[in-house]
Design a protein around this nucleic acid. Structure first.
Lengths: 144, 144
DNA sequence: GCTTGACCTCAACATTAGTTTAGGTCGCAT
DNA sequence: ATGCGACCTAAACTAATGTTGAGGTCAAGC
């Protein structure tokens, strides 16, 4: 089974070399080193990066991805079942996110009808749901 | 019609005073000043903030929100129709975003079936859609 | 065996979305 | 009129997600 250099992985996965370095620093991917200290990746790194990219599109923070990927076997190359398990979890996450957005849309549609967006009456502005108590720091699309 | 102080607005809208200062610096909201240089807000600021909060939940960057809000009348308090127009635009944005996520989920579900996530075959890893060419910088849930 | 492109590390910078802190002012109630 | 909480500005800090640059090494082709 071949090993890939950073450049090859970057090209195949469509990410910058600097991003690969970054992911490695953050513990999302691993590499072996040649005698000359250059990175060599096993083939499974491509799948890991695919997962990372999907997660990004869904708005998940890298730390969550790291934790998810940490569940995959570290020594042996992950099997089809390993990936399927992870994928199922992602699908659940996606469905949850879609449900949230849909609810939001429905509320907004209702608001158009009533012409509100008033803080007192409008459910949109006062969502009693899980998002009410977000932590400090930059608020991005909430992780779960 | 009453005017509100920062503290009042912060409390009613559920955001920090520092966030109001920040939004003002970024041109998302405006304020008048008292003789003693303290901020006073018209009632419509609450709606503007509601819009901002909705946008955040949808993962839109503040700059987009600023542009959207810039379309609202600056002098007169926005009418019901003004808000309705904006709301309709947001709903479209939401629907678009939901469609993207749904497509993603469907692809992922397909991937579970085939056990792939392979870079060559899997549509998930090689989305030929608009998201392919994202700019540099931190990649969050893409703004449209 | 030398040159050139790919690679290495470490540090600094960029961007978004704010919060925190420092040092000072306003205004309301007593 | 004084004291305390709410307010002001400006600048620095945080956090996530990388990119860019400097200064130096590796390896492969000519």
């Amino acid at each position: 089974m071949r090993e890939f250099s950073v450049g090859e992985v970057a090209k195949r996965a469509g990410v910058a070399v600097s991003a690969l370095h970054f992911y490695e620093r953050k513990g999302l991917i691993r590499s072996l080193r040649t005698a000359g200290n250059q990175r060599r990746y096993a083939a499974d790194v491509l799948r890991r990066i695919a997962v990372i990219r999907v997660a990004q599109r869904v708005g998940m923070p890298l730390e969550s991805v790291r934790q998810a990927l940490a569940c995959l076997p570290d020594q042996r190359t992950p099997s089809v079942e390993d990936w399927a398990t992870m994928s199922a979890a992602w699908r659940a996450e996606l469905e949850d996110r879609i449900a949230q957005l849909t609810e939001l849309k429905d509320r907004l549609t209702g608001c158009i009808g009533c012409g509100c967006l008033s803080l007192k009456a409008c459910a949109l502005a006062n969502p009693e749901d899980r998002l009410a108590a977000e932590g400090a720091g930059p608020r991005r699309l909430a992780p779960g």
